[in-house]
Amino acid sequence: MNRLRGIGWGRWAAIVVIAVGVGYAPIAMTELWPYAHRGAPAIGQSLLAHVTNPRYVADALATRIKPYQHSLAALVVHSVLGGLLMLLGPLQLLTAVRRRVRLHRTLGVVFAVTVYVCMAGAAVYLLRTAPRDAFSGPAFWIVLATILVGTVFSVTFGIVAAVRRMPEIHQRWMLLCYAFLMTAPLLRFEWGALPVLFPGIPMTQINQIAVMHLGSVVAFGALVASRRLDRRVELPGMGRSWVPWWVLVPAALAGTAALAWLTWSLVSAGGVQNHRLAVGYLVPFAVTAAVMVWRMAVAGREGRTWAREEWGIHLVALCLAPVFSAACVLPFERALHIGHATAVAAGAAIGCGFLAFWATAVVGLRALVASTATTSGLGARGSADLRLRRVGAASHPGH
């Protein structure tokens, strides 16, 4: 018991993530078997029907038969490889922590190739499926497409960071990549848990509520994990902060205005479901913002300038997420021919994840600029020392 108490919250979080990934792997791999062969086992559907009720599951999945048949082979590849990624992610984390460099690199190559092939299968499905035919509607199609792009670019930038020998930035990109992948098991958890809060509503509406905040939740989880693993107090060569008060305050004001508009747009559209969507978006957003402000303040008070900088960059991104979401509404309406409330929900659902991606890119650029400044400073110092030695040698030819 004492040994269990000695385990920090960070290790407990890692244990939970690993357990979720490993536990979800067989569910992902068998999820689409019944669509290929009637009566084939589907572990996930059985568990969900047991936790909720069979009718709740059957009514939702019955509508998937026709859309899935268009891209069944690609979806099977996607689901099987998605399950494999759930296993490879924890292995990558463990080999990195244990400093098994050669094994980590080998598994990293396998992980990256698997991500590309897995996401190619998802891309085939999305290209062959009209947004209106996606599960729970066009907003979910947009969310899936955004997660696909975010996952592919995250692993790509992670590879670039590894090649450039920037392990801390590589680590951030790979954590974000795995966080995007974790939206799949977390969504299944919400399918089972949210009916307790909203009894009697179908899974399609539960899905709409869940995707309003999944992007922000997983991106925030990746940020917390990154900060947990990076213990550096200062970043050599960082210089002045990129997020002074005159950047934070306008971002917060713009974000507040956009957040108010998004909320008003959902609530004024009428209907209980739109009110649920607004709550599903606002509550996690407010909690995430509060934690970021708190951690940024604590880091500043303790003199941990690099931690404060990273929290600040992500806080600015979170503030600008509603602005980006609001800017997406009109293009979604025009391009996909969807209603205003649906476009607002879709924009809100992808905003936090999209801006977290760019915040990670800015953090990487911040580290690269600091590293370049440090290298330039050392080079200039070395050149000056060399010139001094040459002058000294010329002044004292007898030595």
Rank of each mutant, 00 (worst) to 15 (best):
A120W: 11
H50E: 12
A73V: 13
L336I: 08
M212I: 01
T95A: 13
T114G: 00
G221A: 01
S371P: 01
L330Q: 07
A346V: 05
A356E: 01
V16N: 08
G83D: 07
T52M: 02
L48R: 01
T129A: 00
R308P: 11
G353C: 06
D230W: 09
T204H: 01
N2Q: 11
A278Y: 06
A348K: 03
G377P: 08
A210E: 03
D59F: 06
W12V: 06
V316Q: 09
E310C: 10
W264C: 01
I15R: 03
V249I: 11
A60I: 05
Q69W: 00
L4Y: 02
G303Y: 08
Y178R: 09
A257V: 15
T342M: 10
V196A: 14
I7T: 09
V16I: 13
R3F: 04
L91D: 10
W141D: 08
Q171A: 10
F111E: 06
K66I: 14
E190P: 00
I159E: 04
A380V: 03
R228W: 15
A359P: 05
A40H: 02
A112M: 12
V16C: 11
D385P: 14
L61P: 00
R3Q: 05
R55S: 07
A269M: 05
M1G: 10
A112T: 15
V291Y: 14
A120G: 03
A96L: 06
W245V: 15
A367Q: 13
G221Y: 03
G8D: 07
A384L: 15
W294N: 09
G303H: 03
G364D: 06
A380K: 10
D59L: 15
P331Q: 02
C328G: 09
A123D: 00
A341D: 12
L103A: 13
I338T: 12
T151Y: 03
M86C: 11
G21A: 07
R334S: 11
I27T: 08
I43M: 03
A393Y: 01
G353I: 10
L282M: 07
A225R: 01
A62F: 08
Y125M: 14
P131C: 08
L93V: 09
R132K: 09
G271P: 09
R301G: 15
V249P: 02
A145T: 07
M212Y: 01
S383T: 07
